[in-house]
Simulated scan of single mutants.
Amino acid sequence: MTLKRNGNSYRFSFYLIGLLLLLAGSFYLHLRTGFTDFTDGQLLRILTGGGTAGENLTVFDFRMVRSVLAVLIGCGLSLSGAVFQTVSRNELASPGLLGVNAGAGLAVMLLVYFQNENTALALWETPLAAIIGAATAALFIYRLSYRTGYTLSTHTLVLTGISLTAGIHALQMLLVVRLNPTQFHTVNTWIIGSISGNTWLHAALLCPVVLLLGFFLGARYVDLNVLSLADETAIGLGLRLNRARFLYLMIAVILAACCVSIGGNIGFVGLICPHIARRLVGTNHARYLPVTLLLGAILVLLADWIGRVIIAPDEMLLGIVVSIVGAPYFLYILARTKA
């Protein structure tokens, strides 16, 4: 028992240090590469305060804000996916498949549709609309999956989420034909997913949400471990099952909604990162959550870097790159589940 515990600790430490180094390298690469590449010496000079006004603008206001947002969005979406998979006890669950992203997307689309063309959206309006849409979808799914006097059916939760996602996408298709070209460009970019054009204010809005909810989930890892057990076992250990599922479901919804409100409807991050983390360090959430959020940060950061350089000087939207990586892995998960 002791040898096994020590082995798990060493393996977790190995992966944690390795992923932190990979994240640092990815962050540096993201800052260094773009429309104008910098050498190592130039970037070091700029970061230590010796850059020109143009260089500082490029590194700090254009690239670094994207780097920080990519890390925050990757952490938030991957943590949200991990919680969804724990609550539903289904490794195919994610914010995108359970209707959360779709609900946020429909709310943002309605906001853009009814927006006065002569006034710009306030910074807080899109995140608020996304949270309301995502929470409404999540509450609707929860209500349909819950029966008084019974524990929440995780199978019904997943099936209802998939059905609701399909219905919301149909409504989006009906609405999109009524958008003018400017509105369509805004909505289409958001639906695909991109962090281009965001500012430090967006990072300041997202950072406390991801940090506070991430720390809360890390501190409550025992509850999440119990939630991953069978219902009878969880109840026997004293967990109020329906209340716990609702609480962590809402936390996952808020994380996903805040991230997609700024980065758009980026799929697959919340699906594949928790799955890979489980294969690396197991299901103990004390180890599982840190590895999951690091994988999410690295995936989004590298995907944004690839999108900037693969067809330079043009740019491929972040959501497309993530989908190119995520779709084959999703098919692999499906094949493995059937096997």
Rank of each mutant, 00 (worst) to 15 (best):
A286I: 13
A137T: 01
G51D: 03
V322K: 00
G96P: 04
E125G: 10
Y329H: 08
L334K: 06
H30Y: 11
P274N: 11
A219N: 12
F216I: 12
I251F: 08
S261M: 01
L175E: 01
H275L: 06
G263V: 03
Y146H: 11
L164Q: 01
N265I: 12
I192T: 02
S196T: 14
Q172K: 13
L237M: 14
L98C: 00
L57D: 11
A257P: 01
V325S: 08
G49Y: 13
E315K: 07
S163Q: 08
V108W: 02
F62S: 06
N284T: 09
M250T: 07
V177I: 12
R63F: 04
L295W: 04
Y28D: 09
R279K: 15
M109D: 04
G218T: 08
M316T: 13
G149E: 06
R11M: 12
A339K: 13
F268K: 01
F27I: 08
F114D: 06
L213A: 01
G50D: 08
Y146L: 13
V112S: 06
L139M: 11
A135H: 01
I298E: 01
Q115S: 15
A138C: 03
A257S: 09
E125M: 15
H185F: 10
L334C: 05
P313V: 00
R11E: 12
A137S: 12
L295V: 05
P290R: 03
I141V: 07
L289H: 07
P274F: 02
G74E: 03
G263N: 07
F38L: 14
S323E: 05
L239H: 07
L110V: 14
R45V: 09
N225P: 05
H285P: 02
Q42L: 14
D304Y: 06
R308T: 01
R245F: 05
E91Q: 11
A122Q: 13
R5W: 13
G50T: 11
L111T: 09
V253G: 03
N188I: 15
L77A: 05
A277L: 10
H155M: 14
C207S: 15
I192V: 11
I324F: 11
E91T: 15
F114R: 04
S67M: 09
L201Y: 13
L31Y: 01
L21V: 13
G264M: 02
L44T: 12
R11L: 10
L44A: 12
G197P: 06
A82Q: 00
L331G: 08
G74M: 05
L302C: 12
H275K: 03
V222F: 15
N198D: 11
Y15S: 06
T148P: 08
L144Y: 02
Y10Q: 14
G270S: 09
F216G: 12
N225M: 06
S261Y: 01
